[in-house]
């Protein structure tokens, strides 16, 4: 999921740095307040741990292996803000010293993985878990939070990549950066993440959480008061609005050749290898787009923003729905056990 240099236009990269900055500032303030002088060694050691976990090959059912980021589990254990910082540091080191992910695209990588994954991982867990839940249920919830948060991060990455050919082309209409639009980038990215990478993340999150719960439960971050649903709703709402605002940030930049981005050929290519199950996903993005040339009513920019907003909203609703179903099922399962 690490975006290398050359895949994003410098404008998008700049926008992603700008988007990450307020979160990083907030995170360091928060962490400083809680940990004070202990912050430096604590964040350092956990960033190193984050880096090391990203190096592991996780054995998956079926004999393959996959990488996990370990960010969801660190968000659940350390709390979202410390996790944002430690993931960011790990990503900086990967980019600077080991060429994993680019320098200009670092802002995007920090945003997608460090920030969004930490926040979604943590808040999903807190949203679903109740203090009286059985250990087993908590583990399942942690695992699901890991699975979903890595997929949200992947979706964001796919969106950032997918808007490149729509925004930036040379005078001949050829792609300069990542060449495929959303029809392609979203399904391709999501296939990989809904299966292998998501599974790896879910497994690591669940198993490590189980281990910590059994051996050293006092390590797990708690804010004292449990998260009220009102507070959480407020937070997710703000987050959603932010995402919607963020998606078209790239539009501010001087893009060229607007008219060509809805090319039939690209759409064909993209749809030709989407398995049936992903039709739902792709239709989120596709639905409003074919009508983009309604003359005089809406220009493509507005339509693009509109479709992006709709996509984010629908995805959010879908995930929310999925979670509440899982939560209900989990509750029943628990009562059966006891």
């Amino acid at each position: 999921m690490h975006i290398p240099d050359g895949y994003l236009s410098p404008y998008t990269s700049g926008a992603m740095y700008a988007a990450s900055l307020p979160f990083l500032v907030r995170a360091s303030r928060n962490v400083k307040k809680v940990l004070n002088s202990r912050m430096i060694p604590l964040i350092s050691v956990f960033s190193a741990l984050s880096f090391v976990i990203m190096m592991f090959n996780i054995p998956l059912p079926g004999g393959t292996t996959g990488h996990a980021t370990g960010i969801a589990i660190s968000a659940i254990v350390l709390g979202p803000w410390a996790s944002i910082l430690s993931a960011t540091v790990a990503l900086v080191i990967q980019a600077l010293f080991f060429g994993d992910g680019g320098i200009l695209s670092l802002g995007a990588n920090i945003f997608n993985m460090g920030i969004v994954m930490s926040l979604t991982g943590y808040f999903l867990y807190r949203l679903l878990v109740r203090s009286k839940d059985s250990a087993r249920k908590k583990i399942v919830i942690a695992s699901i939070s890991g699975y979903i948060s890595v997929n949200i991060a992947a979706l964001l990455t796919a969106v950032e990549l997918g808007i490149q050919p729509m925004l930036y082309k040379n005078s001949l209409g050829q792609a300069l950066y990542f060449p495929y639009n959303l029809y392609v980038s979203v399904p391709v990215m999501m296939i990989g993440h809904l299966t292998i990478a998501g599974l790896a993340e879910g497994i690591v999150t669940g198993l490590v959480f189980a281990w910590i719960l059994r051996v050293q439960p006092d390590l797990i971050f708690s804010e004292g008061k449990s998260l009220t649903s009102k507070k959480l709703f407020k937070f997710s709402f703000l987050g959603l609005i932010f995402l919607i605002l963020l998606t078209p940030l790239g539009l501010l930049a001087p893009g060229t050749a607007w008219g060509e981005w809805g090319r039939e050929e690209l759409a064909l290519l993209g749809l030709s290898y989407i398995p049936a199950g992903f039709d739902k996903w792709s239709s989120f993005w596709r639905a409003p787009i074919p009508d983009y040339d309604i003359p005089g009513i809406l220009n493509p920019t507005l339509l693009y923003i509109f479709s992006a907003c709709l996509g984010v909203l629908l995805t959010g609703l879908f995930i929310f729905f999925l979670l509440s179903v899982i939560n209900k099922l989990g509750g029943k399962k628990k009562s059966n056990h006891e």
Binding site: I40, P41, F46, F56, V204, V208, W211, V215
Partner: peptide, 25 residues
């Protein structure tokens, strides 16, 4: 088995990291 062992490895690293960061401080 491998997954379980890997989880205990990562868990151990987590716990050890807490102790180590305290000592470094």
């Amino acid at each position: 088995e491998n997954r379980k062992w890997l989880a205990s490895l990562i868990g151990t690293l987590f716990a050890r990291s807490f102790v180590q960061s305290e000592e470094i401080y």
